[in-house]
Simulated scan of single mutants.
Amino acid sequence: MADKKPNPALMKPVQPSNELVAVVGSSPLPRTEVVSKVWDYIKSNNLQNPENKRELLADEKLQAVFDGKSKVSMFEMNKHFAQHLS
């Protein structure tokens, strides 16, 4: 079995949008790090629905990233990031 190599596209630093900067900071980061920092933010601000851990309850900063939605599933989250990274 061959060793899995990380996808170079995922390791390339991307610039977060102004909305995402409020959550992850202004430095260019690899996508994997963006996702990791958003999860840190969600956990430190207790933004997971306690009845359904797959549902994220967006505060003001995350609503700006999630197109104004107050709730998104963890599976939708990455789709919303696409328009906030360049």
Rank of each mutant, 00 (worst) to 15 (best):
F66Q: 07
N49I: 03
F81L: 15
S27T: 12
K61I: 02
Q15S: 10
A82M: 15
A82I: 06
L47S: 06
S26V: 14
K4I: 11
W39C: 05
S26R: 15
V38A: 07
S17M: 04
V24E: 11
P6L: 05
S70C: 13
K69S: 00
S36Y: 11
D40V: 13
N78G: 01
P13L: 11
F81S: 03
T32L: 13
M1I: 14
G68L: 09
N49K: 04
L57K: 07
H84I: 11
K69Q: 10
K5N: 09
Q83W: 11
R54T: 06
H84P: 07
Y41T: 09
A82H: 09
Y41Q: 03
E19R: 01
P6I: 09
E51M: 07
K37F: 08
M77V: 04
V14P: 07
A9N: 06
P6Q: 10
S44Q: 14
G25E: 02
S27P: 13
W39M: 12
A22E: 14
F66Y: 10
N46M: 01
A64D: 02
V23I: 14
G25H: 01
V72G: 00
H80K: 08
P6W: 04
V21A: 02
H80T: 12
E19Y: 09
N49G: 03
V23Y: 09
M74V: 10
N52Q: 09
N46H: 02
S17P: 09
V23Q: 05
I42C: 00
Y41M: 10
P28C: 02
I42K: 00
N7L: 03
D67R: 04
S44A: 10
K53D: 08
N18G: 08
Q48L: 09
A2F: 13
L20C: 05
V35N: 15
L47A: 04
M74A: 12
V38D: 12
L20K: 05
K69A: 08
L29P: 01
K43H: 15
E51R: 11
M11D: 11
K61M: 05
A58V: 05
A64T: 02
L62C: 02
D59M: 08
H84W: 08
P6M: 07
L47F: 05
L62R: 03
K61F: 01
K53T: 05
K71F: 08
V72W: 00
E55D: 03
L47D: 05
S27G: 14
Q83V: 12
P50N: 03
Q48E: 08
N45I: 05
V35T: 11
T32F: 14
H84T: 09
Q15F: 12
L20G: 08
M1T: 13
V35H: 11
S27N: 14
N78D: 04
F75V: 13
V24R: 15
Q83S: 14
N52M: 04
N46L: 01
V35Q: 11
D40K: 10
Q63E: 05
V23E: 05
L62E: 01
N45F: 03
K12V: 06
A82F: 08
P13G: 06
V24I: 12
K37G: 00
M77Q: 07
